[in-house]
Write a protein that binds this DNA or RNA. Structure first.
Lengths: 225, 225
DNA sequence: CGGTTGCTTCGGTCAAAACCGAAGCATTGA
DNA sequence: TCAATGCTTCGGTTTTGACCGAAGCAACCG
């Protein structure tokens, strides 16, 4: 039976623990060098190189040469979505990691999910946006309201540009820690960008963990009110 | 780096060609016996049994014993969504199957995608629903309109029940043949159910291919007008 | 220029798992 | 109760591919 796309190839790529670690590391959205990824996966540089070549050929990653470094990153929203879907499925199916260290707790609190805010704070933000009627969650699909458009524009986001682009403005993303929805899509990206610009929060060096600054904590609490 | 869910385990499951074939076969939504799946994957019964045990333990499949048969099916919408995401990604990344036989052409025309209609006809249906303003595609998210609700109710679908359930009513699903969106979600499921009940179309034995009846062809052409 | 760093290619080792046939267990039907 | 069918478990073989160290390129740095 040889129908449909060759799903096994991608599955095999994601199926190796070393490669899976690389991919989850890259889900922060930032590009990493081959050596960094090798360290991340806990393997020798030679081995990592082989893995990266396969991920490249499989279309999951892209490279960019910069001097003698090679920066790898997730190929695009498609790849990121598929990986997210796998993460969501895994969480549902109950394959937990054994360890739940301090880093894990920080991750649950606030982290970058590819390019938007996730974790308890991401879920809370989305909940506030819903209760203030800035967006409407209609049976699994998010729609922005008029009131929402105004607020986001006031917050410095170019709504017109977002709508003009091909990428969905609002998308749901299932949080693997909270098991609740948070906001993805280009609006999610822009919001996180603004948060960083305003130094309300910053990313922990080489990690997906996001830490709030004191001023950010205050500003975030009354956002959109 | 051991953060996040263990994505590698699921990846490895999907990564074996035999298992991937089983999964894609089961994406038709119908349950299949172990022997059928073995034939589908082109392996001995003994080998298939081992694979199925792994898929079960991994939470991707469910079994139901019926007499001396064991019917396996996809565990649920979560698993189906993840597999669909992989299929979409694969198609985008350009891993095509080499072969494009007659069965493949039929599949591109009309097929069952887990539980809803896909292929050229599925895409066409969704396009008509959009142009008639029954649903609105707003930046990647589908919303049902008032007019749509009326039409669907008239077509014999219990909209109230759909909205009450947890499952999203409308979801987009990227068609791997057409590279365009078609309708998934519970509304997609109910529509296909009605089509079968009305004998507008029927599924080809043991396949995902859907064939239209002459009367169905006519009725489908003027649906919702 | 050497020397250093970042990355890849090569060759060889080793462990995981896919695979099958045969035997075993359970269910059905005569 | 005995055969037939559907499926799983068991042993043993074979393939796959993950892994590392060493060597080879390429780019930057003094």
């Amino acid at each position: 039976m040889k129908n449909g796309p060759d799903i096994a190839a991608v599955g095999a790529l994601v199926g190796d623990p070393a490669r899976a670690n690389m991919l989850t590391s890259l889900m922060s959205g930032q590009a990493l060098t081959a050596t960094e990824l090798a360290r991340e996966a806990g393997i020798a540089a030679a081995t990592a190189s082989g893995h990266l070549a396969k991920l490249l050929e499989g279309g999951l990653l892209l490279v960019e040469r910069q001097g003698r470094h090679r920066y790898y990153r997730i190929a695009g929203p498609d790849a990121a979505t598929a990986i997210e879907a796998l993460m969501g499925l895994v969480e549902h199916a109950g394959h937990r990691r054994v360890r739940a260290g301090p880093k894990d707790l920080e991750m649950r609190e606030a982290r970058v999910c590819y390019d938007h805010l996730a974790g308890a704070r991401g879920v809370a933000l989305f909940a506030r946006m819903t209760s203030l009627n800035l967006v409407v969650l209609h049976d699994g699909s998010i729609t922005m309201t008029q009131k929402g458009e105004q607020q986001f524009r006031r917050f410095g986001i170019d709504i017109v540009a977002l709508k003009a682009a091909k990428r969905p403005v609002c998308r749901t993303c299932l949080d693997w820690g909270e098991r609740r929805t948070h906001l993805a899509g280009s609006l999610g990206t822009m919001l996180l960008d603004r948060f960083f610009e305003n130094t309300w929060m910053h990313r922990l060096e080489g990690s997906r963990v996001v830490k709030f600054t004191p001023s950010g904590e205050a500003a975030f609490a009354t956002l959109f009110e």
